[in-house]
Write a protein that binds this DNA or RNA. Structure first.
Lengths: 243, 243
DNA sequence: GTGCGCACTTGTATTAGAGTTGTCTACACA
DNA sequence: TGTGTAGACAACTCTAATACAAGTGCGCAC
């Protein structure tokens, strides 16, 4: 059975991309190098690469080279380490388990922040090395979340899924006792202390686009804040009295 | 594996910034020095530095040099009013009750931070409108505290008593359950959730001068942190996994 | 103290070369 | 006609090397 050369080559390259062989380096070997490696002409290599481009796996820039398509998106975002990157860097294996995914009417306070009650609510459990370390509930403004699927949310963090520039956030940190549902999910006794955080994230126009709620078991997590200047008080900065 | 030179260099510099290698001096080596060190042209070094500038990590002034940009970015964090000023502004009457005042040998970790075990320990209860809202224990390096009396500490906050310029602090925020002594002081049930903060304050020379420990009842206190830039993750910033 | 010059820095613009993709033509083969 | 090879050229990117303008900091003569 006769197979077409550049289909074979495309298949081989696809396998390498999946295996992550080229993912790290970000840049694929040049067409010339590949043509030597596969004993094929540059034109044939190009045809194979163009197939992969049509599939969205790779992309090319003239004078630069072929690169894995996904990476370029992540590049500008990589500047600040996320908690999951930190975990990965320190050898801990992060995991996300989606518990609930629903478009629904947001609670009053969230709806007021969005200016619209229609929202996507995602509840998930984050694990570190298989052990639960956070329950996260995210509300996302409905119009921005319309194209998101459960698989999207399971695969990528929200900031990658929203293709609008985010600008800032306000975050509240408090302590509380775990209720029975939380205790079950986090595998801690009912009533044991947890850190409870609420965060509202806005885009560059100042519109609130995300409201999220986080519950961390106290024995596994702490916040570390560096204050470059003394803020004139022994009391930790940012502390507010509630009611 | 092909990689782009100035991406490599940017990555290396980023690592140094994170590790604090350049943070102390605040001023980075000049472009020329870096070009020699990396065996790269000045243009390449510039590209790497400009990447870091886009990320907000460093900044430059013509004729002066490149420097770590962290301070100005985080400045807003430091401008928060002190908790007691906030209380006064909202009509709440703050009060400080000194519980213990003693020059003594500091615990091992505090002594190591000071470089000297001799320290002043002050334990006090903070009240708002007569109700307890914080247990604060402050260790102050012994040589700086020698002229301080119990009356001094009762009257003024520590930052006013120390006549040396303070420069920054690192603060850890966690949750825990109140033990019996704390519960009694704060007038809450034993085992109810509290916020526990540890802060080390340094002077401009980088010497640790204060170590303080704070316990807040969860039902009365929360931390509010404004994050000027989106830090690219739903996970609250500054969160670290413990051990 | 004031002003000046010197050394050093970043900001910006060139030139050049090597390496890359984008595109085309010509040819061979089944 | 579809497939593959070979080669040539344009356009682009990255890096090096160089030069000059503009700003900063510092010491020195006055």
């Amino acid at each position: 059975m006769r197979t077409i050369r550049y289909h074979q080559i495309a298949e081989e390259l696809r396998a390498r991309l999946d295996s992550g062989e080229y993912a790290a380096g970000r840049l694929l070997p040049s067409e010339s190098e590949l043509s030597v490696e596969f004993s094929a002409s540059r034109v044939t290599i190009r045809k194979a690469l163009e197939m992969l481009r049509d599939e969205g796996l790779v992309d090319a820039r003239q004078g630069f080279g072929w690169f894995v398509a996904g990476e370029t998106v992540r590049q500008p975002l990589a500047r600040l380490a996320t908690i999951e990157e930190q975990m990965r860097a320190s050898g801990v294996r992060p995991e996300r388990r989606i518990l609930e995914f629903a478009f629904e009417k947001a609670p009053r306070d969230v709806a007021r922040a969005f200016g619209n009650p229609h929202a996507l609510r995602v509840k998930r459990l984050n694990l570190a090395d298989g052990e639960p370390f956070a329950i996260v509930t995210v509300w996302c403004a409905g119009d921005l979340a319309q194209h998101l699927s459960r698989a999207d949310v399971e695969r990528s963090p929200f900031y990658e899924l929203l293709d609008i520039p985010l600008s800032g956030a306000t975050q509240t940190i408090g302590a509380d006792a775990a209720d029975s549902a939380e205790a079950a999910l986090l595998a801690v006794p009912v009533g044991s202390p947890v850190l409870r955080c609420t965060r509202t994230t806005t885009d560059t126009s100042g519109r609130v686009v995300l409201v999220s709620h986080h519950v961390f078991p106290a024995h596994r997590t702490k916040f570390v804040v560096d204050l470059p200047f003394a803020d004139q008080s022994i009391a930790p900065s940012g502390l507010r009295l509630v009611e």
